[in-house]
């Protein structure tokens, strides 16, 4: 019988948690949940004084009460999985706040239940694996477009883009910060999907691994993917800011919400 005990932390465990959280994407936007400001609080509680494992609590919240539960579920699942990778973490407890389906969601995530069993009644034909794949494709295409455009800006021609080897992209130095950021992420998703494993492989294959056939048509596709994702992205940012009173109505400094949770060691950024 041991009650959870809070303890003062040096920064290291929290930093490790935040670093793992940076790897969790909003699936619809392909942006880290940390950058989107969705993570409200992180706390670490040692499970027992004589043990080396801890429980990590993460609470997060979304731009609206109505955000799709399936997207929220993917994020909650990602948060739990990423944090439980850390060797000193016994369990990650994830709490979604201020959401229409928060209770069902939180119970399901922390019990390790699948989305389908919990939301069967509401979304009977939901196939979360298929949804995840759909978002992976969009993420791939969006990152790829940024990198292709950055290569074009360096003077490469479409005919060169379609047959360019991966090595050329790896060594390209982009001055635009967004291009530089997306290059790292693009190479990461190439690796993750086992596309272009060798430096001589095509830098810009399709998601199916084929060479781009009709360049103009392919770029139209990438553009439409980006337009849709940007819509959701900028809307979500605006709504998130407004919902949590970060909008500047007064002309004064934006009001930041007080994240304090009693009786817990916590941190936020």
């Amino acid at each position: 019988m041991t009650a959870p005990i809070s303890f003062a932390l040096d920064d290291a465990p929290l930093e490790q948690v935040w670093a793992r959280l940076d790897l969790v994407m909003d699936p619809e936007l392909d942006e880290p949940v940390t950058d989107m400001g969705f993570i409200e609080a992180v706390s670490v509680i040692r499970t027992a004084p004589d043990q080396n494992t801890s429980t990590v609590h993460v609470s997060f919240r979304l731009p609206t009460y109505w955000c799709s539960p399936n997207f929220a579920f993917l994020m909650a699942e990602g948060i739990k999985r990423q944090i439980e990778v850390l060797p000193w973490v016994g369990q990650a407890v994830v709490t979604l706040q201020d959401h229409m389906a928060a209770d069902e969601m939180n119970a399901a995530i922390n019990a390790g239940a699948s989305f389908g069993t919990v939301f069967a009644e509401l979304q009977p034909d939901e196939d979360l694996a298929a949804l995840r794949e759909k978002f992976d494709i969009k993420a791939f295409q969006r990152r790829q477009e940024v990198v292709i455009k950055a290569m074009l800006a360096m003077g490469f021609l479409p005919a060169e883009i379609v047959k360019m080897p991966r090595a050329l992209v790896e060594t390209a130095a982009f001055t635009d910060p967004e291009a530089a950021r997306q290059k790292i992420r693009y190479l990461a998703i190439l690796d993750e999907k086992h596309l272009a494993p060798s430096p001589r492989d095509l830098a810009f294959p399709t998601y199916q691994g084929a060479r781009i056939d009709d360049y103009a048509q392919y770029m139209d596709l990438l553009r439409s993917v980006r337009i849709n994702m940007e819509f959701s992205g900028s809307l979500c940012r605006g709504l998130k800011r407004s919902r949590y009173q970060e909008a500047d109505l007064s002309g004064d400094v934006p009001i930041l919400v007080d994240f304090t949770a009693p009786n817990l060691t916590h941190a936020c950024r």
């Binding site: 609206t64 009460y65 809307l235 940012r237 605006g238 709504l239 407004s242």
Partner: peptide, 17 residues
């Protein structure tokens, strides 16, 4: 609460854009 959250969501559209 849905009624409250609905108008709050609209207001967030208003202030956000």
């Amino acid at each position: 609460v849905h009624g409250k959250q609905f108008i709050d969501c609209f207001y967030a559209y208003h202030t956000g854009l």
